[in-house]
């Protein structure tokens, strides 16, 4: 199945792209995807925040086909 992955702020710069469509296997968690995308680009990043379909999720959240996944650093608005 395919999911769309988006990156924001400093993480977007580290990853060198703002989004991509990625093939993942069934029963993939959002953390599995995070480990996979960072390993493929040899990126180390602590304190990542994770969202699926624009809602915060825990790292063991299971992905579904067509999900929009977002990875980003701690937020600094206001």
């Amino acid at each position: 199945m395919q999911v769309t992955v988006k990156y924001f702020a400093s993480l977007r710069e580290l990853m060198g792209e703002d989004s991509s469509v990625i093939d993942v296997e069934d029963n993939t968690s959002v953390d599995d995807l995070w480990q996979s995308v960072t390993a493929s680009k040899n990126v180390a990043f602590d304190n990542v925040m994770m969202a699926v379909n624009m809602e915060y999720v825990k790292s063991d959240h299971q992905l579904k086909s067509g999900d929009e996944v977002a990875f980003f650093p701690p937020v600094t608005g206001g």
Binding site: F8, F72, V75, T76, G77
Partner: peptide, 11 residues
């Protein structure tokens, strides 16, 4: 809540 959870980033 906005400061700690709303997705904004400052550069």
């Amino acid at each position: 809540e906005l400061k700690s959870t709303a997705p904004f980033w400052k550069k």
